[in-house]
């Protein structure tokens, strides 16, 4: 940790050596460690209040199997906080003219419309590829994958409104990725897309003239609610919700004890069958037949595999959380 002074208001801020863009917690100005103020800093608007967010979460959870139908009455909020996560969004226009060699086939040994062998020769090839792509990068400190890969809707971005962040006592995270690094990464991604298209047409590129232009770029903070809740006291569950569109990014699921017991009972039932199947298969393999004259090897293998996998799936489905993809 080091101290840095805001170039706008002079406030002292604790920063980490890896921070690339700092947002002043006193006045909301964003600046780089060398003290240059960012001209353009965007954020998504907070459209969901804390109680809206909680209602959305309840409406989502109540649809999940194993959750009590009267969850809305039982749920109690332990903590709700807002964090602004930083993302870079770059629009890159790439243009590559290339010269190289490509393979061309000739055929030998004709019979009918077909040939018995194929021979490759090399020919000169030239061409041109143009692609414009919007590249989105999560720029903050290490967090859960659901947030890193969250497909933010850049459409509703506005200029960063510090008053709004302050009003929600939000924690505004600093970017670990500088503007230049983000730009290079976005160009690199666009370049890969263009070259994968070129490589489809050309065996080897020998000479290329590249031109990459950033047509638009934005540093965007996305407000996300972190919610901790309990259901009728007991264990604490966590969830994250997009404060601008109300989407559930992830949530842990408060399944009822009754449901969990039933699920565990059913998984135990599957696993007992797995063991029985494995034992019978083993004995049959050794030539010991439980019922004389009946070779139970194959059905026992069937029993052990199917019930084993059903047991594993049951455990998986009743314990997993929910990611943005499923919560959409």
């Amino acid at each position: 940790m080091a101290k840095k002074h805001c170039p706008n208001c002079g406030g002292a801020l604790d920063i980490h050596p890896t921070d690339a863009i700092i947002t002043c917690s006193y006045c909301g100005t964003s600046f780089t460690p060398d003290g240059t103020k960012m001209k353009e800093h965007f954020a998504l608007q907070v459209n969901y209040s804390e109680s809206d967010a909680l209602d959305t979460l309840k409406a989502y959870l109540v649809k999940v199997p194993g959750v009590a139908n009267d969850l809305a009455q039982q749920i109690s909020l332990k903590e709700i906080s807002m964090t602004y996560y930083p993302y870079w969004v770059y629009t890159v226009q790439g243009d590559v003219s290339y010269r190289g060699i490509d393979k061309k086939a000739s055929f030998r040994g004709q019979s009918g419309g077909r040939y018995s062998s194929i021979h490759w020769e090399w020919v000169a090839e030239s061409g041109h590829q143009e692609q414009t792509r919007q590249i989105r990068l999560y720029a903050g400190p290490k967090v859960r994958g659901e947030i890193v890969n969250y497909p933010i809707a850049t459409r509703s971005r506005r200029y960063f409104n510090f008053e709004e962040a302050k009003q929600h006592t939000a924690n505004v995270l600093f970017s670990k990725v500088s503007e230049e690094a983000a730009k290079q990464q976005a160009i690199g991604t666009t370049k890969n897309i263009i070259y994968s298209r070129i490589n489809r047409e050309t065996e080897r590129v020998e000479e290329a003239k590249e031109n990459f232009v950033v047509t638009d770029h934005a540093y965007i903070h996305v407000p996300i609610y972190h919610i901790q809740f309990t259901v009728g006291g007991g264990k604490t569950y966590e969830a994250a919700l997009d404060a601008s569109n109300g989407r559930v990014i992830y949530t842990e699921i408060p399944r009822t004890t009754g449901f969990k017991l039933k699920a565990l009972g059913s998984a135990a039932f599957w696993f007992i069958l797995t063991i029985i199947g494995a034992a019978v298969a083993f004995l049959s393999y050794q030539g010991i037949h439980l019922i004389s004259g009946l070779d139970l090897f194959y059905p026992a293998i069937g029993l052990t595999t199917i019930s084993g996998i059903l047991g594993i799936l049951t455990l998986y489905y009743v314990t997993r959380g929910v990611t943005a993809e499923r919560a959409r």
């Binding site: 909301g28 965007f42 608007q45 850049t154 509703s156 971005r157 506005r158 200029y159 960063f160 409104n161």
Partner: peptide
């Protein structure tokens, strides 16, 4: 703070050329 906290109004101050009604515009439009 002037550059980072431009009020939202400046983004939506565009007016329709035909009927003069205020237009809601986001930076991506």
């Amino acid at each position: 703070m002037e550059s980072t906290t431009k009020p939202i109004e400046t983004m939506t101050a565009l007016k329709c050329q035909s009927c003069n009604a205020p237009l809601t515009v986001s930076p991506d439009d």
